[in-house]
């Protein structure tokens, strides 16, 4: 579904990614792991169109999407839950969710999506009319993910969902992602918590200073020497 080849990208002319290639097939949960500053967020931002790539190709469902403006990419079925959540704080929970469905034309579909999302995240329904900034960190993360689901995306990309959350909440969020994946939605996640991510992923890639240094199924990577030494402290 999503194929990235030889991606080169960065900020202000300085590249952070040098030659990144990977793919995500329909129905998979793929994890890209690596430490801070490796360039994980940059990958997602380039795919969703927030930044333009300096080189390489991005293909979605067989069509090239690199270089297109972000709002058009989103319309094609890619949802990006950004690093740091970025909920619209001054707006209500419900309005945040409705914004997630901005590209959905039919009002009926929007209502249906809202119901589905409330079923998955009952706490959000309780807090429907509250301003998003009054939610706790964990709830805001749920809101950001829910918002991403509102457009019924073909692929959901989540960026560092565990950041800044207590361990219990981190588990909860990962649980939710597993459920979403089981429901059939393709998920691409980018994570610092290497162990957890590789345990839930179907396949994974390891990113180190802008390059992919290892790839394979989740299980394979957990047993990979490099991974074990560098990230799992073994």
């Amino acid at each position: 579904m999503l194929r990235v080849r030889n991606l080169k990208a960065g900020y202000d002319g300085v590249p952070v990614l040098f030659d990144v290639s990977f793919e995500v097939n329909e129905g998979e949960l793929v994890a890209i792991v690596g430490s801070n500053g490796a360039g994980k967020s940059t990958i997602l931002r380039t795919i969703s169109g927030l930044i333009k790539p300096m080189g390489g190709e991005i293909e979605f469902e067989g069509k090239r999407i690199d270089g297109q403006p972000a709002h058009l990419i989103v319309e094609q079925g890619i949802a990006h839950v950004p690093e740091g959540r970025h909920v619209f704080g001054k707006m209500t929970v419900k309005d945040n969710l409705l914004l997630g469905a901005h590209t959905v034309k039919s009002e009926k579909e929007v209502s249906a999506a809202l119901e589905d999302v409330y079923a998955l995240f009952p706490r959000l329904k309780e807090r429907e009319s509250q301003k998003a900034e009054t939610l706790s960190g964990g709830e805001q993360q749920m809101l950001a993910i829910a918002r991403g689901l509102m457009s019924r995306p073909k692929i959901l990309m989540v960026d560092e969902v565990s950041l800044g959350l207590m361990p219990i909440l981190v588990d909860k969020v990962f649980e939710t992602l597993k459920e979403i994946s089981k429901a059939g939605i393709t998920v691409l996640m980018v994570e610092q918590k290497v162990q957890d991510a590789l345990e839930m992923a179907d396949r994974g890639y390891v990113l180190q200073t802008g390059r992919i240094v290892a790839c394979g199924t989740g299980r394979e990577l957990l047993n990979n020497d490099l991974v074990k030494r560098a990230y799992l402290g073994i």
């Binding site: 927030l50 972000a70 949802a79 950004p82 619209f88 914004l99 901005h102 590209t103």
Partner: peptide
Amino acid sequence: LDKATAKLMGIN
């Protein structure tokens, strides 16, 4: 509120 995130909502 947040121009970049707005773009991620598909907002032109």
